[in-house]
Design a protein around this nucleic acid. Structure first.
Length: 429
RNA sequence: GGCCCCAUCGUCUAGCCUGGUCUAGGACGCGUGGUUCUCAGCCACUAAACACGAGUUCAAAUCUCGUUGGGGCUACCA
C-alpha cells in the first residue's frame, strides 16, 4: 500500500509551490490507490497561526485534495521524545546543557550516503561534512528533520514527495532512519517553482495565497490544471487535462528535473478554457455571493433563470469569474453608469431621431425576440441608409455604459423593452 | 566559501534513457490577417530555443568532461 503525505507548516498561507507539492502527492496516491496523509508541522508555536492553518485546510479542500488522515506534530511531542531517548540509551545521541535547558543531539558518524531519488536519480553525499544534529531543542520541541523522520516512519509513509529544497536534508534524515532502525522510504524531489524575478517564491515574489486565486475568480479545476503543467506533461501536446484523466496517466517518472518559472498568463488562458465549458448553473452559484455583496441581487429571492441566461452570455469572454460582476453590472443596476470616454466617443452627436425611431420599432414588435429585434433594427438602418454600426455603438453605450460587451441584440433582449426605452430616452432631446 | 541540483523558443513543455525519423513539435504570451456591431471568443499565419567549449561517433538537442549561468541547502526555522 502506497502512503504519501503533504506536510505544510502553518506559518504562512498555502501558495502555488505548496499546492503543487500537495497535488503531486495526492495524485500519486490516487493513481496508485494509496493513501494521502496530511500532516501539520506546527512545532514552532510562535510562528504557527490558526489563521494560516484554516487557510491551508480550506484551500486544500477547495482544490479537491482530500486527505485520508490528518496529524498535528504539536500533539506528538511525547513520541519524538521517546525516540530521542532511545537514541540516547543506544549511545547514538548525547545531552547538551544550555542556559535554556537540555537538548538531545544526534552524533553524526562520517560515511557515504546514497540517495536514490525517483526523479533526480542517484545522489551521493558525504556525512563527514554534517554537523551533529539537534533532535530535541532545549525548549523541548523537536527539530524539523527529526520530527519528519519519526513521523514518516510512524505514519508508514512509503514515498516522500517534496520540494527540491529538501534534497540536502535527505542524507541527514537517512542517517536518522538508520539509527532508529526504520525502513528508508522512497524519495522524489520535485523541481522548485521559481518566481518571475528569479529565486524561490516568497511573500514578495509571487507567493500568492491559493485563497486569493479563489477570491479573484479562478476555478479550482483551472488552477489544478495549471499546477499540473508545472513540471509534468501529459504528452501528446495536450494542455487542457482534467484531474480525473490526470489520475489515470500520472506517474512520477514523467516529472521533469527543471525548475519552472511561474508565469500566470497561462493560468488566465486555462481559466477561460474552463469557464467557457463549465456548467452555467455552477458558475451562477459561485457568483451569488459577489452579486449579493454589490447589492445586484437578493440572494434569498432572485430570478435564477435570468442570471443563468446572463452567465451564458458572458461565459466565453471571462478571464476570471469575477469579471462578470463588473461587465454585467448594467443588467442589475437601476441607473447605468456611463463611462465618460465611451460617451464622448459615441454619444456626442444628437441621435434623438434615430433613438426615438428605434424605440417605436421595438414597441411595434409583437414577439420581442433576439431575432426580431435584430430584423427590426437592420430594416430601420436600411431605410435610413446608414451603416448598422453607426447606431449600434451609441445604443450600446446608452444601454450598458460601455463600449465593450455582448452582442447588442442579446443585450436589448435581456434588458427588456422597458429598460431599453428608459435608458435610450435619456438621450432623446 | 563548502556541499548538492538543474540547463530546449520570453514562459510552460515534447524530444534526451534506447544517438540518425529534429531544416527541434505543441501551448501561453507577442505580432499580423480573417470572422462579427465592440470586446472576448473562434480561425489562419509570422517571429521565437537545443547556454558555451572540448571529446566520443560515420552521425549528438540526445552520451562524456569542462566552463558559464540559474537554483537550493549550509539553524536548538520548517
Amino acid at each position: 500500500m502506497i502512503r504519501v503525505r503533504f506536510a505544510p507548516s502553518p506559518t504562512g498561507y498555502l501558495h502555488i509551490g505548496g499546492s503543487r507539492t500537495a497535488l503531486f502527492n495526492w495524485l500519486y496516491a490516487q493513481a496508485k490507490g494509496g493513501k494521502f496523509v496530511l500532516r501539520i508541522e506546527d512545532t514552532d508555536a510562535l510562528r504557527s497561526k490558526k489563521e494560516y492553518l484554516d487557510e491551508i485546510l480550506d484551500s486544500l479542500k477547495w482544490l479537491g485534495f482530500n486527505w485520508d488522515e490528518l496529524y498535528y506534530q504539536s500533539q506528538r511531542f511525547d513520541i519524538y521524545r521517546k525516540y530521542a531517548e532511545k537514541l540516547l540509551k543506544d549511545g547514538q545521541a548525547f545531552v547538551e546543557k544550555t542556559e535554556k535547558g537540555e537538548a538531545i543531539i544526534f552524533k553524526v558518524v562520517g560515511q557515504k550516503i546514497k540517495v536514490n531519488d525517483l526523479i533526480l536519480g542517484e545522489i551521493d553525499f558525504e556525512a563527514e561534512s554534517f554537523k551533529d544534529q539537534v533532535l530535541i531543542k532545549s525548549d523541548g520541541t523537536p527539530t524539523y528533520n527529526f520530527a519528519c523522520v519519526v513521523d514518516d516512519a510512524d505514519m508508514q509513509i512509503t514515498h516522500v514527495i517534496r520540494g527540491d529544497d529538501h534534497i540536502s536534508n535527505t542524507p541527514k534524515q537517512i542517517l536518522l532512519y538508520q539509527a532508529l532502525g526504520f525502513k528508508v522510504p522512497y524519495f522524489a524531489h520535485l523541481p522548485l517553482i521559481l518566481s518571475k524575478e528569479g529565486g524561490r517564491l516568497s511573500k514578495r515574489k509571487g507567493a500568492t495565497a491559493i485563497s486569493e486565486f479563489r477570491n479573484m475568480g479562478y476555478l479550482s479545476q483551472a488552477l489544478v490544471n495549471f499546477l499540473l503543467l508545472l513540471g509534468w506533461s501529459p504528452g501528446e501536446n495536450r494542455e487542457v487535462i482534467d484531474i480525473q484523466e490526470a489520475v489515470k496517466i500520472f506517474d512520477l517518472k514523467n516529472i521533469n528535473k527543471t525548475a519552472a518559472v511561474l508565469d500566470l498568463d497561462k493560468l488566465d488562458w486555462i481559466n477561460n478554457q474552463y469557464l467557457k465549458t463549465e456548467d452555467p448553473e455552477k458558475l451562477a452559484d459561485q457568483l451569488i455571493p459577489a452579486l449579493a455583496e454589490k447589492g445586484y441581487i437578493n440572494p434569498q429571492e432572485f430570478d435564477r433563470n435570468y442570471l443563468l441566461s446572463l452567465v451564458k452570455l458572458f461565459q466565453a469572454r471571462l478571464t476570471v469569474l469575477n469579471d462578470f460582476v463588473d461587465w454585467a453590472d448594467f443588467f442589475f443596476q437601476k441607473e447605468v453608469r456611463i463611462d465618460p470616454q465611451a460617451q464622448a466617443k459615441h454619444l456626442s452627436v444628437d441621435l434623438s431621431k434615430e433613438f426615438k425611431m428605434f424605440c417605436q420599432r421595438l414597441d411595434g414588435l409583437e414577439d420581442f425576440s433576439i431575432e426580431n429585434i435584430e430584423t427590426a433594427f437592420r430594416q430601420m438602418v436600411g431605410e435610413l441608409g446608414i451603416q448598422a454600426k453607426v447606431l449600434i455603438h451609441p445604443i450600446r453605450v446608452a444601454l450598458t455604459g460601455k463600449t465593450i460587451g455582448p452582442g447588442l441584440f442579446e443585450v436589448i433582449y435581456y434588458l427588456g423593452k422597458e429598460r431599453v426605452k428608459e435608458r435610450m430616452a435619456k438621450w432623446i432631446k
